[in-house]
Each structure stands twice: as structure tokens, then as C-alpha cells.
């Protein structure tokens, strides 16, 4: 059994909005295991970023963890004080946030991004930081001399993304969370970064959480997959199991909705219906209005999580009712 580093249990996160509360993460349970790449996949708005931000407790002010726990080394991150969290962020768990390409400060050279980040986490030795930064930039195959003295706008999207990955590794974290790290990039740059991340994982022995809406990218990089729909984790399993024997109807249909370059085109089709209104999610199973396998309990009762051995988890009445399909 792989060692569990983080255990998320029954997590609920809500945003307070003018239209009322919005439950972005709904009773999510999930573990992050030592040395793996955990892929989190789901449509836009399914709560992937919110879940990641909850783990590091970097949620925006209008968001609140309503219930649940995030256990890390025997302690609950959901209840930890800001002071204690500071010792963990970046040093033990770091993150490359979504759309981070645009978040680099345009007036700061790359070297200062490294220095400022280190300083914010109590590391003042500039020489040491630059030395470490150079090492990391080489690891992501950038020329440290040139890149450190550049401003963000002087670098291409792919180069900036690699800088951000290097920056996330600055304080030797054990876990790195990458939120859509290849979404804005061209195919060739994406390929380079995917292969680079796999290599870094092996070489540095770090654990990665890779968030994306692109199921093909998950197939390529993840060891284990968590599928999210409408704020809930609906299926978890080893990447091969999830792709070759998807259990949840949403997973089954999602895989078929992404056109690959091989495989029969006649087997590919869109998912019927449209994604749920998160202010007014459907009763019962959130997916039932779009589900071809729906039966009596689906529009009335929330399916519970069913553990099926081999670390497979699914939340669907087909399995609670033992009417496997």
C-alpha cells in the first residue's frame, strides 16, 4: 500500500455570492499518495481549483470551508492557524496556480521572483537562492544566465510555465499541485512539459497533483485519477482501470467525448444535456439529468461513495444498488 500524504475527507467549500451560497466542492473525499501523479479531471466549474486552493488554504475571502477535514501528517490543514500554514506552504506543499502565466509580476526580473518567494518564506540568503534557482532552471532545461536576468514578457509562454515549475520547487516541497499547467500552451510545448514533469517526479521523488479539464492529458501523465462533476468526486482509480473500465456514467461518456487521433470516430459523441447550474444543482445524483443509465433512486437520493477494492471508488447508484452495469 502506498503511503497516504494527504487525506481529504467529506470536504465542503462554499462561496458567498450575491445570488446566495454556491457549493463549489461538495462532500469530496480523496487521498494524495506518496510519489504519485494524481490527476484531477472535470469540466469547467466542477470545483477542481477550489479543491486545490482549499488544501493550501489559499481560498479567496468569499470562500469558506464549511465542513470536512484535510489530514496532513496527522494534522488537519482545514483547521490550522495561518502561522502554522506558513511553515507548510511552498516548503512542504507548493502550487502552480491556474493562469499563472499572467500572474508573474511584469516589473520584476525572474531572479527577483525567486528571491522574493524565498524571502516571503523566511529564506534570506540571496546567493543560495540564486544558486538553487539556477540548478532548478537547468532541470527544466532553461538557460539560467539568460532567464534569470529576463523580465517575464521576454519569455515565451512555454518558458514562463517552466519558470513557474522551477519556482514551485524552490524550497524542496514534497508535494506540488499544478493547476492546468499546460492549458494555454501549444501541443509541442505541452508535450515537452508533460514529459518533463514525469522525469522530475522520478528524479526528485516528489508527489504531484495535476489538474486539468483535458482527459487526454490525464491519460498521458497521471498514475491515479479523480473525476469531478459538479463539485463532487465521482470516481477514483488507477489510470488504466479508469480508462479501460470506467465505472461512473460521467467518466464513461467523458472519455468518449474527446476525439483522439486513433479509434473509431463513430464511437465518439458529445455528452447529452448541459453542465449543471451550480447555484441550483439537480437533486439526487448531480449527473442524473444527463445520464443514460438513470433509474428510480437517481433523482431523489445522493449516491454514497462505494469502495470497490484496488483503491477504486465510485459514487453512483448502479453500484450502491449492486446493479452493476
Amino acid at each position: 500500500m502506498p503511503e497516504t500524504l494527504i487525506a481529504i475527507d467529506d470536504l465542503v467549500v462554499e462561496y458567498f455570492t450575491l445570488r446566495g451560497p454556491l457549493r463549489a466542492v461538495d462532500s469530496a473525499s480523496l487521498t494524495i499518495n506518496q510519489g504519485e501523479i494524481l490527476g484531477i479531471v472535470g469540466e469547467s466549474g466542477s470545483g477542481k481549483s477550489t479543491l486545490a486552493q482549499a488544501v493550501l488554504r489559499i481560498l479567496p475571502p468569499q470562500a469558506r470551508i464549511v465542513r470536512g477535514s484535510i489530514t496532513y501528517r496527522g494534522r488537519d490543514l482545514a483547521k490550522m492557524s495561518e502561522g502554522e500554514l506558513k511553515k507548510i506552504r511552498w516548503k512542504e506543499i507548493s502550487m502552480v496556480p491556474q493562469a499563472a502565466l499572467n500572474a508573474l509580476n511584469p516589473t520584476l526580473r525572474i531572479r527577483d521572483h525567486f528571491i522574493e518567494t524565498a524571502k516571503a518564506h523566511g529564506v534570506a540568503d540571496k546567493r543560495g537562492v540564486i544558486e538553487k534557482a539556477s540548478e532548478l532552471l537547468e532541470q527544466v532545461r532553461l538557460d539560467p544566465k539568460r532567464v534569470l536576468s529576463s523580465y517575464p514578457h521576454e519569455l515565451s509562454g512555454g518558458m514562463k510555465q517552466r519558470v513557474l515549475i522551477a519556482l514551485s520547487l524552490l524550497l524542496d516541497p514534497q508535494i506540488v499541485i499544478l493547476d492546468e499547467p499546460t492549458t494555454a500552451l501549444d501541443v509541442l510545448t505541452q508535450r515537452f512539459i508533460l514529459d518533463l514533469l514525469k522525469e522530475l517526479k522520478e528524479r526528485l521523488g516528489i508527489t504531484m497533483v495535476f489538474i486539468t479539464h483535458d482527459i487526454a492529458v490525464i491519460a498521458d501523465i497521471a498514475d491515479r485519477v479523480a473525476v469531478m462533476y459538479a463539485g463532487q468526486v465521482v470516481e477514483v482509480g488507477n489510470v488504466f482501470d479508469v480508462f479501460y473500465e470506467p465505472l461512473h456514467p460521467y467518466t464513461r461518456l467523458l472519455i468518449k467525448s474527446v476525439p483522439g487521433l486513433k479509434g473509431d470516430i463513430e464511437d465518439m459523441r458529445p455528452i447529452p444535456g448541459s453542465p449543471p447550474d451550480m447555484f441550483n444543482p439537480p437533486e439526487g445524483c448531480r449527473f442524473h439529468p444527463r445520464c443514460p443509465w438513470k433509474f428510480e433512486p437517481c433523482d431523489r437520493f445522493d449516491p454514497s461513495l462505494v469502495k470497490l477494492g484496488d483503491g477504486r471508488i465510485v459514487s453512483c447508484h448502479l453500484y450502491t444498488d449492486k446493479r452493476a452495469g
Binding site: 501541443v187 509541442l188 487526454a216 491519460a219 498521458d220 472519455i255
Partner: peptide, 14 residues
Amino acid sequence: TLIAAVPEPDPKYS
């Protein structure tokens, strides 16, 4: 090169 680089929704093949 592009076609070889595209990730596929099939883990073994990709």
C-alpha cells in the same frame, strides 16, 4: 511531430 505529440484519451497508447 505534432501528431506524435498529441496526448490521447488512451493511457497505454498515449
